[in-house]
Design a protein around this nucleic acid. Structure first.
Length: 826
RNA sequence: GCCGAAGUGGUGGAAUGGCAUACACGCUGGUCUCAAAAACCAGUAACCGUAAGGUUGUGUGGGUUCGACUCCCACCUUCGGCACCA
C-alpha cells in the first residue's frame, strides 16, 4: 500500500467524467453513420457488484472506443443489461424483493461502477431486456419464427435441472450438469417450445469461413458444436416387415463387414420388431431397463455395453446376407436415425459389443502395414486401407470406395447420401417467471394461437406470489392465464412458460440503433447502415451459446428481409479471465477483488492501466496488488514529467553529447508513436503498447537529467512529453485529459487527432551490429546505418575481439543481415 | 480418444528465422529522512572466475539452417472444447 498521493487523481477523475458527460462526448446521432465504428461489449447480467475481472471487458472496450474516436471515427458504444434471469427470481423467492426491483437496483449499482471506472457509453441508448418496450420485440421475434414454422412445440426428452426447476437447452448442459448451478440434470418427457436452429446448421457452419476476424478457437468450438458429418443413409429391408429401416453411416466402405444392426432402445420400430418374438417378454424387459438408464448414466465415462437380439433380420443389399437386428444401449436416438449398421472389425464400439455377445467379425479393409485377422485382432481397425471381402470393390483403397459404394447405393436406390448434424433444435421454454412470456394462447376451439402483433407485449404480471417450491408464479396468476382467444374471442388460456434469456440477448445489438421505436423492433435502413458490429468484445464463455444464437437470429432476419446482412459481428475479441489465487474470481471462492477500494486508493486510471498491462488481453492473467502499485507509480512519474516539461526554458545551445541525445529522443518519440499505433491497430496489444510508452518516458527523463538547467532543444522535449500524454490517453483518459490541458490545450483530447509519425524521423542513423562467430555472439560494433557491405566487412574483421577469435582460421562464409548482424563462419 | 491453445528469469511477460529475458513487479545495495513511504542511483538467468572473460540456457529428444524461443518430426506436461455422434 502506497500512502502518499502521487497525483490528485480523485479530483481529476470526477471532474473529467462530469465534463465528458456534460459535453456528450459519447453520444451519437444515429443518422450520422458516415465513417461509423460500432464498438460493442457483451451486455452484462445485472448481478450485485462488478469485480476487476468484469472490468477487463469494459476497459478494453473503452480503450478501443476512445482510440477510434481519436482516429476520426464516429464511434457508437452503447451499453445495456441482460436483465431477465434466474438469480433475481431466486432472490425474490428467498427474500421477497420483486425481481424487477432488485434488477433495477443492481443496474443502478453497476452503472455507478462503470461510471467510476471512466468507462463511457452512449447511455441515451440503454437497452434493458426485462422492460416491456424491449421484450415486446423479443415476443415479436417468437411470433415471426412461429409464422415461418421455425418455432414449434413438441414432446421430447428434455434436460431438466432439479435445482433451477426448469428445462435447459443442450447448450446449457455441461458434462451432464446445469451450466448455471452445476446440479446434475435429469431427463423429462415434456412438451416444450423449440426454435428450429437446425434448419440453419449448414449455413451456421459454412459461414464461419466469412468470419475471418474471429478467433480460430471460437470458430472451432462452433464447428464442433454443429458437428457436421456426411455419409450414406441406407434403407434396409426388414425380413418379414413392410417398413424399411434407415441407418446412417459415414463408413459406407465397410458395408460388406456389417455383421449386425443395432437400434436405440427408444427407436420407434422397437415394439414392432419384437412383436411376435418367441422371447418377447425377456426382450421387453431388457429394453425397458435400457430405457430407464438416464442419458447421463449412459454417457458417463465408459458405460457398460448392453443389448438384446430381437430375433429379426435385415437384408444387406450388397450381398443379400441376412443381418441380425439387436437393440443396444450405446445407440443414441438423438443422432442420425437411431439405428446403425455395426461393423465390428472397423469400429471400436461395435467391436466391443461383438466380443461381448460373440457376434461375428469380418475384416473388409486391410491395414496396408500389417494384415488383419478377424480371429485374433484385439481392437477394431478404424483407419483407411485396401478393400477386401467386398465383392467388386476388392483391391481399391477405402477412400475411393466411399465414393464408389455411395454411387452404387444411389444407382440402386438402396439409400442416399445424407448429412448429419450434432446440433439440436434450441429449446427455449423455461418454467420460470422472470423472463419474456411466450406470446401464445391455447384455445379449446382454435388450438394453439399466436398473440397478434397489435396485442403485444404480453405483459409479465407484477403482483404475483413467489412460491418456495420454485414453481412459476405465472401458473397461478389467474388474470394472466385466463384470456380470450384472439381468433374466436372465446375463453382461452395463455402459455405460462417464458423464454430462455438467450433469446433476449440474441438481438439486443440491433435495438441499440433505434432504442425508442415503438412500432418496430428496429429501423431496417439505419440498422443496415450501422451493422454489422465493427468490434464485439466479450468473454470466451459465450463462444457457443450467445454467439451461435445471435448468428442464427441474424440469419433469420436476413431471410425475412428485415436486415441486409447475415452475420452480426465482423470482428470478435474474446478477452481472458482475471485469476486470483489460481482460480476464477467468484463470490463463493471468496477471491473477488473489488474495484471500489482500489479506485479510492489509487484512482480509476491506475486500475485501468494495470488491467491493460497485466498481459496479452486474450489470455488469462493472475491479479497482483503489487502490480497495481507499479501502475500507480508510473502514472505519478508521468505526472511529474509533465510538470518538469512545463518548467523547462531554453537557455543557450546544447553541446554535442546533448545534441545526440536529443536526436535519439526525437527518433524514440516517433518510433513510439508507430509502435503504439501498430499495437492498437494490429490486434489489441495493450501491454506492449504501454511498455513502449514507459520506455519513452524513461528516455525523456534521461535527457532532462543530462542537463537540468535547460540548455537544450525544448521543442523535441515538448514533443516527447506531448506524445506520451496523447498515446497514453485511451488507456488512462482522466489523467490524460488533465495533463493535456496542463500542456495548454483547450479542447478535449478525445476530440483531438491521434498523432502520426514522421517516416524520416524513425530511421536510425547509427546502428549496432552484432557480430557472431559460427552463430555465437562475440562482439558488437557501432556503424553508420548506410555503410556498404564491403566497409562493414572490413570493420568487422578489424574488430580486435573478432580478430582474436578468427586467429589463423580460414573464413568459409560471411553472412550479412543489413543493419543487424554479421555472422562469420569458420 | 479426437480437435485446439500454451510451456521463456524469483513473478507477470517481451522477442515469430538474426544481440533471448524489452517493459514492469519483486529482491539486494546506496542517496535523501529521526524513521517510514515516495523519489532517485547501481545491480539482479544459472554456473566458473578477483576481474577480463568463458560455459550453459526458452518443457524433453532429434532434425533443417551460416544462424532456431521462432520452422519440421517425435514425446512430456498444463489448460480449453468435443466425445458410445455411427
Amino acid at each position: 500500500m502506497i500512502e502518499e498521493k502521487l497525483y490528485p487523481f480523485d479530483e481529476i477523475e470526477k471532474k473529467w467524467q462530469a465534463y465528458w458527460r456534460e459535453n456528450k462526448l459519447f453520444t451519437v446521432d444515429e443518422q450520422n453513420w458516415k465513417n461509423k465504428y460500432y464498438c460493442l461489449m457483451m451486455f452484462p447480467y445485472p448481478s450485485a457488484a462488478l469485480h476487476v475481472g468484469h472490468g477487463r471487458n469494459y476497459i478494453i472496450g473503452d480503450v478501443v472506443a476512445r482510440y477510434k474516436m481519436m482516429r476520426g471515427f464516429n464511434v457508437l458504444t452503447p451499453m445495456g443489461f441482460d436483465a431477465f434471469g434466474l438469480p433475481a427470481e431466486n432472490a425474490a423467492i428467498k427474500g421477497g424483493i420483486p425481481p424487477k426491483v432488485s434488477t433495477l437496483n443492481n443496474i443502478a449499482t453497476m452503472k455507478r461502477q462503470l461510471d467510476q471506472w471512466g468507462v463511457e457509453y452512449d447511455w441515451s441508448r440503454v437497452v434493458i431486456s426485462c422492460l416491456p418496450d424491449y421484450y415486446k420485440w423479443t415476443q415479436w421475434i417468437f411470433l415471426k419464427l412461429y409464422e415461418k414454422g421455425l418455432a414449434y412445440k413438441k414432446k421430447a426428452f428434455v434436460n431438466w435441472c432439479p435445482s433451477c426447476k426448469t428445462v435447459l437447452a443442450n447448450e446449457q448442459v455441461v458434462n451432464g450438469t446445469c451450466e448455471r448451478c452445476s446440479t446434475q440434470t435429469t431427463q423429462k418427457d415434456l412438451e416444450q417450445w423449440f426454435f428450429r436452429i437446425t434448419h440453419y446448421a449448414d449455413r451456421l457452419l459454412s459461414d464461419l469461413d466469412k468470419l475471418t476476424e474471429w478467433p480460430e478457437r471460437v470458430k472451432t468450438m462452433q464447428a464442433n458444436w454443429i458437428g457436421k458429418s456426411t455419409g450414406v443413409e441406407i434403407d434396409f429391408k426388414i425380413d418379414g416387415l413392410a417398413e424399411k429401416l434407415k441407418c446412417f453411416t459415414t463408413r459406407i466402405d465397410t458395408i460388406y463387414g456389417a455383421t449386425f444392426i443395432a437400434l436405440a432402445p427408444e427407436h420407434p420400430f422397437v415394439d414392432k420388431i419384437i412383436e411376435g418374438a418367441k422371447d418377447k417378454a425377456a426382450i421387453s424387459k431388457v429394453v425397458q431397463k435400457m430405457r430407464n438408464e438416464s442419458k447421463i448414466e449412459r454417457s458417463q465415462e465408459e458405460a457398460a455395453k448392453e443389448g438384446v437380439f430381437t430375433e429379426k433380420f435385415v437384408i444387406n443389399p450388397v450381398n443379400n446376407k441376412k443381418i441380425p437386428v439387436w437393440i443396444a444401449n450405446y445407440i443414441l436416438m438423438e443422432y442420425g436415425t437411431g439405428a446403425i449398421m455395426a461393423v465390428p472389425a472397423h469400429d471400436e464400439r461395435d467391436f466391443e459389443f461383438a466380443k461381448l455377445y460373440k457376434l461375428p467379425i469380418e475384416v473388409v479393409i486391410d491395414d496396408p502395414k500389417s494384415p488383419l485377422d478377424a480371429a485374433t485382432m484385439k481392437e477394431a481397425y478404424v483407419g483407411e486401407g485396401i478393400m477386401a471381402n467386398s465383392g467388386k470393390f476388392n483391391g481399391i483403397d477405402s477412400q475411393t470406395a466411399i465414393k464408389k459404394i455411395g454411387d452404387f447405393f444411389e444407382e440402386n436406390k438402396w439409400g442416399k447420401r445424407a448429412t448429419q448434424y450434432r446440433l439440436r433444435d434450441w429449446l427455449i421454454s423455461r418454467q420460470r417467471y422472470w423472463g419474456a412470456p411466450i406470446p401464445i394462447v391455447y384455445c379449446p376451439k382454435c388450438g394453439t394461437v399466436g398473440v397478434p402483433e397489435k396485442d403485444l407485449p404480453v405483459l409479465l404480471p407484477e403482483n404475483v406470489e413467489f412460491r418456495p417450491t420454485g414453481e412459476s408464479p405465472l401458473k397461478f396468476a389467474k388474470d394472466f392465464v385466463n384470456t380470450k382467444c384472439p381468433k374466436c374471442g372465446e375463453p382461452a388460456t395463455r402459455e405460462t412458460d417464458t423464454m430462455d434469456t438467450f433469446v433476449d440477448s440474441s438481438w439486443y445489438y440491433l435495438r441499440y440503433i433505434t432504442p425508442k421505436l415503438t412500432d418496430r423492433p428496429f429501423d431496417t435502413e439505419l440498422v443496415n447502415k450501422w451493422l454489422p458490429v465493427d468490434q464485439y468484445i466479450g468473454g470466451i464463455e459465450h463462444a457457443i451459446l450467445h454467439l451461435l444464437y445471435s448468428r442464427f437470429i441474424t440469419k433469420f432476419f436476413y431471410d425475412i428481409k428485415v436486415t441486409g446482412f447475415d452475420e452480426p459481428f465482423k470482428n470478435l475479441f474474446t478477452q481472458g479471465m482475471i485469476i486470483k489465487d489460481g482460480a476464477k474470481m467468484s463470490k463463493s471462492k471468496g477471491n473477488v477483488v473489488s474495484p471500489d477500494k482500489l479506485i479510492a486508493d489509487y484512482g480509476a486510471d491506475t486500475v485501468r492501466l494495470y488491467t491493460l498491462f497485466i498481459g496479452p488481453p486474450e489470455k488469462d492473467a493472475e491479479w497482483s496488488d503489487r502490480g497495481v502499485e507499479g501502475a500507480y507509480k508510473f502514472l505519478g512519474r508521468v505526472w511529474r514529467l509533465v510538470e518538469k516539461g512545463n518548467a523547462l526554458r531554453a537557455t543557450g545551445n546544447a553541446d554535442e553529447k546533448l545534441k545526440k541525445n536529443i536526436d535519439d529522443l526525437k527518433r524514440k518519440t516517433h518510433q513510439t508513436i508507430k509502435k503504439v499505433t501498430d499495437d492498437l491497430d494490429g490486434g489489441f496489444h495493450f501491454n506492449t503498447a504501454i511498455s513502449a510508452i514507459m520506455e519513452l518516458v524513461n528516455e525523456t527523463y534521461d535527457v532532462i537529467a543530462l542537463d537540468p538547467s535547460g540548455k537544450k532543444d525544448i521543442e523535441v522535449l515538448k514533443e516527447a512529453i506531448e506524445s506520451v500524454v496523447i498515446l497514453l490517453s485511451p488507456f488512462v483518459p482522466h489523467i490524460g485529459e488533465e495533463m493535456w490541458r496542463a500542456l495548454g490545450k483547450t479542447d478535449s483530447m478525445f476530440k483531438s487527432k491521434w498523432p502520426s509519425y514522421d517516416k524520416n524521423a524513425i530511421v536510425e542513423k547509427v546502428v549496432t551490429i552484432a557480430i557472431q562467430i559460427n552463430g555465437k555472439l562475440r562482439s558488437k560494433i557501432e556503424v553508420s546505418a548506410d555503410m556498404n557491405n564491403a566497409d562493414l566487412k572490413a570493420a568487422v574483421l578489424s574488430d580486435p575481439k573478432i580478430k582474436n577469435w578468427i586467429g589463423e582460421k580460414a573464413i568459409r562464409d560471411l553472412i550479412i543481415v543489413p543493419k543487424k548482424l554479421v555472422n562469420v563462419v569458420l
